[in-house]
């Protein structure tokens, strides 16, 4: 039955998945186990995305299904059943840019890969990144931006971070459809990516370095 739920979610059968969840709860099953299955299903979704069998709409839809399940099971959860988290990552769309689709996908993919993600939203001033880094001690920062104006903003953000003495302690990645290595050099970032998978690989790489 556990297999059923994992497969049903991974194959994006929304109604069927919700029905199984309700049934299992009615049968008195531990809500935490249902969440665990959901998380396993999300890992499969992530793999399929990596392999280009799934695309952005599939991720969005699977996230939607996951959220519905979480809403059903949350009231039944007892105690602090949090999943153990890997490294912390701060992410946000840089000042002046209000695009969030790419950033949200990176957040989603990092989340299902087990990282603790602090998503600061869009149009984020440099100071916010710094405050969050100091508060959480996160050592990886992701700057997102779609527009070419974001290049300048990323550069400024990284300069402000440098000014605080924090630069040597954090790894900074930049991402967006228009980003390439020239832009990376221009902004002074450590690495760049143009899709969510490259962000996951970078973070895994950096997290493993310590």
């Amino acid at each position: 039955m556990a297999e059923d739920l994992v497969k049903t979610i991974a194959d994006l059968h929304e109604e069927e998945a919700l029905r199984i969840v309700e049934e299992r709860l009615r049968a008195g099953e531990d809500a935490f186990k249902i969440l665990e299955d959901s998380r396993n299903a999300m890992e499969i979704v992530g793999k399929r995305f990596e392999n280009r069998e799934y695309f952005i709409p599939d991720l969005v839809y699977s996230g939607e299904i996951l959220q519905e399940i979480a809403e059903i099971v949350k009231p039944k959860l007892t105690g602090a059943n949090e999943f153990e988290r890997l490294d912390k990552v701060i992410i946000g769309t840089v000042a002046g840019d209000i695009h969030d689709i790419g950033k949200n996908i990176v957040t989603f993919m990092l989340d299902i890969n087990g990282f603790e993600v602090y998503d600061l939203g869009v149009d984020v001033p440099a100071q916010k990144f710094i405050e969050k880094a100091e508060e959480t001690q996160a050592r990886i920062i992701g700057l997102s931006g779609l527009l070419t104006l974001a290049f300048e903003s990323m550069k400024e953000t990284i300069e402000v971070i440098r000014g605080t003495g924090l630069r040597d302690k954090v790894k900074i990645m930049i991402g967006g459809g228009q980003i390439n290595d020239e832009v990376r050099k221009y902004t002074g970032a450590d690495a760049f990516g143009t899709d969510a998978m490259s962000a996951v690989l970078l973070v895994k790489d950096w997290a493993g370095e310590k």
């Binding site: 070419t148 290049f151 228009q178 020239e182 221009y186």
Partner: peptide
């Protein structure tokens, strides 16, 4: 011609 090249190249 990539926009990034026109901006940074």
């Amino acid at each position: 011609v990539p926009s990034s090249l026109l901006c940074t190249g």
